[in-house]
């Protein structure tokens, strides 16, 4: 085999390898790769309130899903820094998805009996549905003050990932 054929063959092989691993590379490079974890979701707290405002359908190149809502623990101290993460739990493993926090004056005003401060009551998070393995997932929220032990709540929202579809399973 002459040299030019060898070079052409090398490019073909390199292209095929890249083609096979490109999704993993893209997820890693864009920071969308999700790690499978073991998270115990059996103990949930009755002191948490929440609402999911928006679940966007998957969109864009990475078929990103955006979830926005609010959640709080009735035991929150005033003006503390709070953190919420989303957990997608299947039968055998879970993905933990970080969120951003936002101030929610409307939530504070709706629950005057808890004397909440508005900071960090809201949350929003995006994840690539491509990074999710096929299967059925329940959405949990991990809610707590920074530095304290967080509590879990079950949102009663279930999603199914099948092929490229990622949809909420409606009750």
């Amino acid at each position: 085999m002459n040299k030019s054929y060898k070079i052409l063959l090398a490019f073909v092989v390199a292209g095929l390898v890249l083609l096979l691993f490109s999704t993993k590379i893209v997820l890693l490079v864009t920071g969308n790769a999700l790690e499978k974890k073991q998270i115990d979701t059996t103990i949930t707290s009755p002191d948490l309130h929440y609402h999911i405002d928006i679940i966007s359908p998957p969109e864009g190149l990475l078929r990103s899903v955006f979830i926005r809502g609010w959640a709080f623990d009735t035991k929150y101290q005033a003006d503390t820094k709070r953190q919420i993460t989303m957990i997608l739990k299947s039968d055998t493993f879970a993905y933990e998805i970080p969120t951003f926090s936002e101030s929610r004056e409307d939530v504070r005003d709706a629950f005057p009996r808890y004397a909440l401060t508005a900071n960090d009551l809201g949350f929003g998070g995006t994840f690539s549905s491509i990074a999710i393995q096929e299967g059925k997932y329940e959405l949990f929220l991990k809610v707590g003050e920074v530095g304290a032990e967080p509590a879990l709540l079950k949102t009663n929202k279930t999603f199914i990932k099948e092929g490229v579809r990622f949809e909420e399973v409606l009750p």
């Binding site: 052409l8 490019f11 292209g15 095929l16 890249l18 999704t23 590379i25 893209v26 190149l61």
Partner: peptide, 23 residues
């Protein structure tokens, strides 16, 4: 093939393009 994404197309295009340039 619903599992084909944008980046697959890009890799394919670049590979074919380089090979064509060489040809």
């Amino acid at each position: 093939m619903p599992n084909v994404h944008y980046w697959h197309g890009i890799v394919l295009f670049i590979t074919v393009y380089i090979i064509l340039l060489l040809v």
